[in-house]
Amino acid sequence: MSLYRLNRLFNPRSGRALDVAVDHGFFGERSFIAGIEDMERVVATLVRANPDAIQLTVGQARHLQSLPGKAKPALVLRTDVANVYGNPLDDHLFSHHLPNAIEEAVRLDAVAVCANLMHLPGRPEIREANIRSIMALRVEATRYGMPLMIEPLVMQDNARGGGYMVDGDVDKIVTLVRQAKELGADLIKADPTDDIANYHRVIQVAGDVPVLVRGGGRVDDRTLLERTAAVLDAGASGIVYGRNVIQHEKPAGITAALLAVLHDGSSVDEALAILDGAAA
Rank of each mutant, 00 (worst) to 15 (best):
R8Q: 14
N11H: 10
S14E: 04
G15K: 07
H24L: 08
F32N: 05
I33W: 02
E37V: 12
D38F: 02
R41I: 11
V42D: 10
R48Q: 12
A49H: 01
A49N: 10
P51R: 01
Q65W: 08
L67I: 15
P68I: 02
P73N: 08
A74M: 04
L75P: 07
L77K: 05
V81H: 12
A82C: 14
V84R: 03
G86H: 15
P88G: 04
L89F: 03
D90H: 12
F94H: 12
S95M: 12
S95I: 10
L98S: 11
D109Y: 08
D109E: 15
N116F: 15
L117E: 01
L120D: 03
E125V: 11
I131Y: 05
L137D: 03
T142P: 02
R143A: 14
E151F: 09
P152V: 05
D157T: 11
G163N: 05
M165Q: 15
V170D: 00
D171Y: 04
K172V: 00
I173V: 11
T175M: 14
V177W: 00
V177H: 07
A180W: 00
K181Y: 05
D186T: 09
I188W: 05
K189P: 03
A190W: 06
A190D: 06
D191T: 14
N198G: 13
N198S: 15
Y199A: 01
H200Q: 13
R201W: 04
V202S: 03
V202K: 04
I203R: 08
G207A: 08
V209S: 00
R214N: 14
G217F: 12
E226R: 13
A229H: 12
A229Y: 07
A229Q: 11
L232K: 04
D233V: 13
A236R: 00
Y241K: 00
G242V: 05
R243C: 02
R243D: 02
N244S: 02
H248W: 07
E249Q: 15
A252W: 10
G253T: 04
A256P: 08
A256T: 07
V268P: 01
L272R: 09
I274H: 02
L275G: 06
